[in-house]
Design a protein around this nucleic acid. Structure first.
Lengths: 253, 253
DNA sequence: CCGAGGCTTCGGTGGCCGCCGAAACATCGG
DNA sequence: CCGATGTTTCGGCGGCCACCGAAGCCTCGG
């Protein structure tokens, strides 16, 4: 509710309900939104890193982080003189993704050649909190669908064949224990505008891809690049074409 | 992004990405948020209705509706001198729900006896865009789970038995044709904080419940009340207890 | 044709909030 | 103990934006 009529308003407006506006307000600022998007890489950042990344003064960043933490979106962990923050949990990440995938794409002008490289690398393969995203991830998802490892008839789900396939690959047990976190979930890819695999299975697959050296992180960004091992594996196992697997430029970082 | 440094900022902040802040900004205002929550009943409202409901002047409402429409959250339809608006689609509704279920509950002070009645009726049974919500909906979801009509092993999904059960009830075909709208989806219930059935199946079940007279809408609100027919049916079919099915007060509207 | 009612446009006002820099505080390494 | 570095607090500034009322436009029903 707003300025002029603080008291008599709420009677008409709402009874009881979620305080949507306060939550949305946290993400309604460009700087805070950029922070959350950066944290979608699933790792912990320090306050200074986020300040530099978003281009604001450290003091400004402090204020924003306070709001995000006390709003429950971020979890913080202090280590010595550092303040590390990360997204509060996978449900928070999923909420932000859900919002982000509905948001209009903002086409930031490309300023330099490395900008262009980075942009293409990001579109090709990256992490999205705890799972893979980008062209490669979409291709994996679609290839799994073609091979009936993934079915869509009753909502996205892993088939029996899919379970076996994952087990044979050595992907460790991905059943959510106790929690009701969706086993298979899809997430609209920003760049592709097509769904990619998320949820517990998506997270397990991503973890395995990193552990087994299919992909490696580039620097401290969300970008990952395919290794030769990963390339042949995805080609042999899922029939993904070389063209799709080849990144336009892998050395932008 | 903000005031002081309009140009040099974006280079550092973001390359390309969803404009999260502008979308969140639409929901960050109490009045607009209340409008969207009201529209979660899935129907079309006129501008004046929304103005009265949120307690602002008609001119103010006009401005808000313009923003929401041009932001793509609402669809409008003009009929004569009326301006009807509704949520743009089920994906929009799902995004708002996702946000709402993560938002803190705002406990509005209860001002009157009818407020209290309405509040209880809302908690008991209501619609949530195109599916059912509230105590009753959660009970249906949990009873379906107990009877293995709904499985959670690989994410929420309808079992074969569940499909047969729905068909026998006369629920018309709920398979999404063409679209990849999730067949079975869950939605965190605001009041119960437990998941209830949503997605295409949830919508089909809700439609059937209205058509077959299990529940009827009360006035022009989101509240629905169980009919005797619905009560016996849910008891016989799913074993839901009388206690759960009995609304504390059904005549608040 | 005329009134009523829904909706819109337009100024003007006021509060909220994001921004910064300076100074203080905490921690780490020597 | 002392400088360097990360973080926080504070005061002040400035822009954005939600609000209203008045006046005008459009449609409907008599």
């Amino acid at each position: 509710m707003s300025k002029h009529t603080p008291s008599p308003r709420s009677a008409a407006t709402g009874l009881v309900g979620p305080d949507l506006a306060s939550l949305a307000g946290l993400l309604a600022d460009g700087t805070r939104a950029a922070m959350c998007l950066a944290l979608l890489d699933g790792r912990a950042w320090t306050a200074t890193e986020l300040a530099r990344h978003t281009g604001v003064a450290p003091s400004t960043a402090t204020g924003h982080l306070h709001q995000l933490v006390s709003g429950g979106l971020l979890a913080e962990e202090r280590q010595g003189r550092h303040r590390y923050v990360r997204l509060a949990g996978s449900d928070t990440a999923e909420m932000i993704e859900s919002l982000a995938s509905h948001a209009p794409l903002r086409d930031t002008p490309v300023r330099s050649l490395t900008d262009a490289h980075r942009r293409r690398a990001l579109a090709h393969a990256r992490t999205c909190y705890d799972h893979l995203a980008g062209t490669v991830a979409v291709a994996i998802t679609e290839a799994m669908t073609e091979r009936s490892l993934l079915t869509w008839d009753y909502g996205p789900a892993l088939s029996e064949a899919g379970r076996v396939w994952l087990r044979d690959l050595g992907v460790e047990d991905h059943r959510p224990r106790g929690s009701r976190r969706a086993h298979v979930r899809t997430c609209l890819d920003w760049t592709e505008r097509r769904p990619h695999l998320a949820g517990a299975v998506g997270a397990a697959l991503c973890q395995h891809a990193l552990d087994d050296g299919w992909v490696i992180r580039r620097g401290s960004s969300r970008v990952v690049t395919l290794t030769p091992h990963g390339r042949t594996l995805l080609h042999d196992q899922l029939g993904i074409t070389e063209e799709t697997l080849t990144s336009p430029d892998t050395d932008a970082f």
